[in-house]
Design a protein around this nucleic acid. Structure first.
Lengths: 233, 233
DNA sequence: CTAAATTTGTGCTTTAAAACATTGTTATCA
DNA sequence: TGATAACAATGTTTTAAAGCACAAATTTAG
């Protein structure tokens, strides 16, 4: 299949969801200062512990936000799709990054230097409020996720992860295949389980006709069942 | 010992940490509209699913923020001390509350109607930014907590909870006793374990001379040990 | 195009933590 | 005051999930 060409890349005014609240001056300011960065598959975008330098927007591709825990076990915290902002939490909280971000697939990122980002945040109230809204929603998600990951059983966690993926990245033309291809390991890291258990549980789901698999291609056959499993474990 | 008297209650200008960024007009506005509410021990302040009506500030006492998960198992998400704001995330995210909040001990809460809170947020950039900072820090904590609760073993989780409590509520005059008295159940709900296991693990810590117990009174004897246990589980 | 490396799939074993059961202890209150 | 309930402590059993080992399949690299 043909690789996507650069020409398809959306310009910053279409990618940046907060563009509409910027003043004409600010728009020009952003346009003059943002930079474009390309990341290859599996390349790191930033590391836990690094000092944050840029507010970032995913322009194209898919990236994972994750933490390394005990014994370098990985927990995927969030997965981003184009148009989503990241890397700004640490800037605002005056902290170092508390997560790693890496590209799942070849990705393009627009970056805006921290001081420029901060100067707009401090001058444009609507801009600031938008980020407040965004992070307020993220905090709700994070707390919900904590409880899901700690209390649900393996099947429930995996079911939830599959639903989350399909909600976040959507389905392919067939209306069933989840529009992201993850390794079993990533799926495990998303659902807080070992790779073996992710594989095993996926197989069980296939046997129960809840999903269908073809390599990394995952099809949701019986969404209701999946929802039910994710609700009670 | 004598109960604290109402006269000791700090006025809103001392409790509200964002007071300094308010304009004289806004200060008057807040003073004219905030209300004071008293909650008894164990009384609910708000419930998961409720529509948020007020931004709240804990003026006195201690409260827990928690979620009911699978099979009504409880997970304490956060514990607040005087001066901390709560109940505003749902307002900003235009959602219902996604947590329950209840008083650990007799507590006093200052409340500001949502529309008033929002009108200040939308007009005072510094005010808005302060909340952005606050919630950015909370999100970092929440993600860190997710990993701790999912990856650490029982001893590590309990050690972490004890350290968190002592950091949050401080120590009594003896320089060792944690300045909050929790039931074993609350301690378990904070550390994602069953009550039995919280009790068992506390006993083990006592036997290993890491802590000392006298009923609900918990003394940290060997903080270094506790830190080490919390780090590796 | 083969060889090495990674990823996937399965069965078996071990273990951490939950579930259960029981008893002692401390508040609560009619 | 004794009755009742809530809380704390501990031992025993069960179970979910991790850990391990190894084979098969797929990718990647030389």
């Amino acid at each position: 299949m043909a690789k996507k060409i650069t020409a398809e890349l959306k310009p910053i005014e279409e990618v940046l969801t907060v563009w509409d609240v910027l003043t004409p001056d600010e728009r020009q300011f952003v346009k003059n200062h943002y930079t474009i960065h390309y990341f290859k598959k599996n390349e790191m975008i930033h590391c836990e512990g690094d000092i944050p330098t840029h507010m970032m927007v995913l322009a194209a591709g898919k990236v994972k936000v994750y933490k390394e825990g005990v014994g370098s076990r990985t927990q995927i915290i969030r997965m981003l799709k184009p148009g989503e902002n990241f890397g700004y939490r640490a800037i605002i909280a005056s902290q170092t990054y508390n997560t790693n971000v890496a590209a799942f697939e070849a990705s393009t990122v627009y970056m805006l230097k921290a001081d420029i980002f901060l100067s707009i945040l401090r001058n444009n109230n609507a801009f600031c409020y938008r980020f407040l809204e965004e992070i307020a929603a993220d905090l709700g998600d994070s707390d919900a996720r904590t409880v899901n990951l700690t209390q649900k059983h393996i099947r429930g966690r995996l079911a939830e992860a599959l639903l989350l993926l399909s909600k976040n990245y959507g389905l392919e033309e067939d209306g069933a295949t989840i529009n992201i291809y993850l390794s079993r390991e990533d799926l495990a890291n998303l659902s807080n389980m070992t790779t073996s258990n992710a594989i095993r549980t996926l197989s069980n789901f296939v046997n129960e006709h809840i999903i269908a698999m073809d390599g990394r291609k995952l099809k949701i056959i019986d969404e209701d069942r999946l929802i039910k499993i994710s609700k009670m474990g």
